[in-house]
């Protein structure tokens, strides 16, 4: 196998990542923390970023890859501008969360884990984010929306996209 030369573009994203890695240089067991921050910068963890983290932290790429694929939170594919995360916890499940997911998938014309054609939303599901009192619930990025119905959920994502498009 040929040895891969790593071409790290000198851009603000990588400079930021470099800064973060320095911050964690003396912290024990920094890998997950660094990957968390890296994903916040890049939106997902492409192979190049994993390779960069591997070299900088002196951790084998196989181990980085192992960690990235173990945790649900880490994404290896690019995601949309915003993530719609529908809770499928028990309380949401018994209050019809599946129907909410189905309605959103139908509206965005995607399957779970995929990104809409316009790149605006990625549809995802979660295992309970503790908003059970508001079941069924979903999050758009860090914001929780509760007491949904299939219709209301579709309205929420439409409204959200409209608001943001208007602002720009």
């Amino acid at each position: 196998m040929e040895c891969q030369e790593l071409h790290i573009p000198d851009n603000p994203q990588y400079r930021e990542l470099k800064r973060i890695i320095e911050e964690y240089r003396n912290v024990p067991g920094p890998l997950i923390q660094v990957l968390n921050r890296a994903q916040r910068i890049f939106g997902y963890l492409p192979r190049e970023v994993q390779l960069y983290v591997s070299r900088e932290l002196n951790v084998p790429l196989s181990e980085v890859y192992g960690v990235v694929t173990f945790y649900n939170f880490f994404k290896t594919e690019p995601v949309g501008k915003h993530i719609v995360n529908v809770c499928l916890g028990t309380a949401c499940h018994v209050k019809g969360a599946q129907r909410v997911v189905d309605a959103l998938a139908n509206e965005l014309k995607v399957e779970i884990g995929q990104t809409s054609q316009d790149g605006f939303y990625t549809l995802s599901t979660a295992r309970c984010f503790g908003a059970c009192g508001l079941a069924p619930a979903m999050m758009i990025d860090d914001e929780v929306y509760g007491r949904l119905t299939p219709g209301k959920a579709v309205e929420v994502i439409k409204e959200f996209q409209k608001n943001e498009t208007n602002q720009n």
Partner: peptide
Amino acid sequence: IEVRMGAGAFVCGEETALMASIEGKRGQ
């Protein structure tokens, strides 16, 4: 005290898996 953020794996609630995860490894 230092805060360590998980990365979405239910099994990390189990204490030995949790420790592996704090160490930056797969939460097994």
